[in-house]
Design a protein around this nucleic acid. Structure first.
Lengths: 187, 187
DNA sequence: TAATAGATAGACAAATCTGTCTAAATTTTA
DNA sequence: TAAAATTTAGACAGATTTGTCTATCTATTA
């Protein structure tokens, strides 16, 4: 009934919502076409299988994630506050999703061990985040020489990931806040 | 055909293996009873549903995980080396499982948002790990006063979690090794 | 030895899953 | 306006899912 002029986008955004909230294996094709309000044939016209839709989902949220990140950090002027802002960004996203966790870590858990393509997309996202942290670090002057900037980038990256995954089962932003305070002392 | 004198243990260990390797939603009751080589009725005699089996699985691996951890750390004499040994322990487990990731983080990703019981068991495991790190820290003298021992426990915990989840999609122990080197400098 | 409890194989229900296909309606392009 | 491409609803196949139930067999216990 809906006259959507971009069926593909409709499918992708509906699938993204469901894959994130329910997980890949708990989301059926039937639910996707029902909620997107499109025909079964249309889905298979744009995506040759549920698995291909999953890859498209991963690529899609990867792009959206960095769009949101850059937009958020752009508003912050002071270089050191930008680093700390990374944690506020994670807190914001986790709060908005009721602590549903990082979508890439969630997806990672459902990927079969031999699906190299999926692991590559996830790795691409995470290493791009780590490299972005390094970029931000290059704009500040360190107070001590305990760590190189490369090491600090790894540290901040791992703290952010460890904190976010913890927030997802504690259903609380507490640990991300602690990670932020720790980083505040490190840089 | 198998004359197992403890059917429950057989079911639980078989389910544990499959839940970890394939994930909860990708593992069917049929596969569990086939591989455990027991009757369908026996499974439902010991566990009233697949979900109850999942809870039992979480409790089971929680106990086994700390058994293995304590056994591993016990062999290390020097207090600081015990902290660093935590990372070697994670490396060992990840290498042995072909980088299948932390079973609790994997399970966490498949838990529906309203399943409080599952999140509680996962949290119990992770916070017990964090508290154990604090215990180990209480046996050493810090080289600097940048962080309290509580803060260091959080830091080491998050580094370990962030590193392990990264190892699981990179299929490499590299990041856990980096986390270890960083902690070596922090304590 | 007899009674009880547990394990077995397997049928069965009812729902769900992914993917294919048809035929008609609609939209886009030429 | 006509042709081509896309979308639609829905049937369908074939496999799979969890959970229940029956009837037989085996092992333990009293």
């Amino acid at each position: 009934m809906k006259s959507s002029n971009n069926v593909r986008e409709n499918i992708l955004s509906t699938a993204a919502d469901l894959f994130y909230k329910q997980g890949y294996n708990s989301t059926g094709i039937n639910q996707i076409i029902d909620e997107a309000d499109i025909a079964r044939g249309s889905l298979y016209n744009h995506f040759k299988s549920k698995n291909e839709l999953f890859y498209a989902y991963l690529e899609e949220i990867n792009e959206r994630w960095f769009e949101q990140l850059y937009s958020y950090i752009k508003k912050i002027k002071h270089p050191k506050d930008r680093i700390l802002g990374l944690f506020d960004f994670r807190i914001k996203r986790q709060t908005q999703s009721s602590f549903g966790g990082c979508p890439f870590i969630k997806a990672n858990a459902e990927v079969p061990q031999d699906d190299k393509k999926a692991f590559e997309i996830i790795d691409k996202n995470k290493m791009k985040f780590r490299d972005y942290i390094l970029e931000l670090l290059n704009d500040i002057t360190l107070q001590n020489d305990l760590f190189t900037k490369e090491e600090l980038a790894d540290t901040i990256y791992m703290l952010a990931e460890g904190a976010t995954v913890t927030a997802s089962f504690q259903k609380s932003k507490e640990m991300i806040g602690r990670a932020k305070d720790i980083v505040d002392r490190l840089i």
